[in-house]
Amino acid sequence: MKNKDITSEYSETTGKISDRTTEKMYKKTGKIKSFINKIANPVSAKADVKKSHIIQLVIGLAIIILLNIIGNFIFVKFDLTQEK
């Protein structure tokens, strides 16, 4: 039915598609694009990326703190000075 509307607005005398018809076509393609975007980049996937980054940060921080705490108990010293 909609296709019929579009074709009916094709002017035989000028051989051009009217402005109203192109506007409708743009609206249609815009809807399709946004639909594809929704499928390709779902909100949950973005949230997962953020979540995984936060987890990475927390794990990294934990490793660093743990390493420093362990390093405080087990350590070695290399004295490079001449006064020993």
């Binding site: 390493l67 420093n68 070695v76 004295d79």
Partner: peptide
Amino acid sequence: GVIDSRDVIYFLS
């Protein structure tokens, strides 16, 4: 002039 492993770990971490 004393290289302490605790300092090295701190800097690297």
